[in-house]
């Protein structure tokens, strides 16, 4: 029985299935590679120091994306600054303090749903909620992104809080530590990796966001400091990409921005992997 060879029919079926799976891998890899290479080939030749370091001018008929880079940095910083305390705080409350499991379940479900909503809806709501009161400005965009990223930060923090062993909490309570001390000294240090992962995911999402910002943050290309910048309308890199490609037909600039965004995304994913590795190592010690 054991040394009997497979029947020819089964052999060819095995071969066929293996071939099909190989084909799907090849297609997936080829598509990704094509996209990457195409964008980089189109984009990199258009990246010049002048493009990176100036703002667009109608007088000299030149295009620079410095304001868009700055706007992106501002909006990322402002959003994280607001969303982090909110999301982490909510996660801590829900996992450590809340006693009504039903309400917690409902909030978690709502958060899950919220993170699946198309971003243009956030844009629409953000426009009515924020832009109509404070004007079209980066801050309005940032607040919209806060709502959008809140579920992500909250859920990743929560998941990470759940991985902190219950025995740590028991040990600390057993020594007479109060709730907040247990959270601050034992629970929070154990979930830093989750918070950082959430942050990195959010940064990636903010970088890639256009629809929500089209409604709320505007399209201006002015070089500002952080505070003035947040109060003024401005385009992030992704929005600028849309504007240059769709409205001005500047495909070279659009591809340059695309290449920059792509490299940034790779770097962010790389950072996320690095952080996770670092904390996994520290935890297993």
């Amino acid at each position: 029985m054991l040394n009997q060879a497979l029947s020819n029919k089964r052999k060819s079926f095995e071969l066929l299935m293996k071939g099909l799976m190989l084909l799907s891998v090849a297609l997936t890899a080829a598509l990704t590679l094509f996209l990457l290479v195409y964008v980089l080939l189109q984009g990199i030749p258009n990246i010049t120091w002048e493009l990176l370091s100036t703002k667009p001018s109608y007088l000299t008929e030149s295009i620079g994306i410095l304001p868009d880079i700055l706007n992106t940095v501002y909006i990322v910083l402002a959003t994280l600054l607001i969303v982090l305390p909110l999301g982490v705080g909510a996660a801590i409350y829900l996992t450590e303090y809340a006693t009504n499991r039903k309400v917690v379940g409902m909030i978690e479900y709502a958060a899950e749903t919220l993170s699946g909503i198309p971003s243009i809806i956030y844009g629409l709501v953000g426009m009515l909620l924020f832009s109509n009161h404070m004007g079209t400005c980066l801050m309005a965009g940032s607040l919209t992104l806060v709502i959008m990223n809140l579920p992500t930060i909250m859920r990743t923090t929560q998941e990470s809080l759940k991985t902190v062993p219950q025995s740590y909490r028991e040990g600390a309570f057993g020594l007479g530590a109060g709730k907040w001390r247990v959270v601050r000294t034992v629970v929070l240090p154990g979930c830093v990796d989750g918070v950082i992962t959430g942050c990195i995911l959010s940064v990636g999402r903010i970088l890639g966001e256009s629809a929500a910002l089209l409604f709320t943050a505007g399209f201006a290309h002015a070089v500002n400091g952080m505070m003035d910048g947040l109060a003024a309308p401005g385009a992030t890199l992704t929005v600028a990409l849309y504007v240059y490609a769709k409205e001005q037909g500047e495909f070279g600039v659009a591809f340059a921005i695309a290449a920059i965004l792509m490299v940034l995304t790779v770097l962010i994913n790389f950072a996320a992997a690095l952080v996770q590795k670092y904390f996994a190592k520290r935890r297993s010690l």
């Binding site: 062993p165 025995s167 740590y168 028991e170 040990g171 600390a172 034992v186 240090p189 154990g190 010690l285």
Partner: peptide, 10 residues
Amino acid sequence: MVFQKPNPFP
């Protein structure tokens, strides 16, 4: 209190 499984903090 001392617990069943040793639970030193990390």
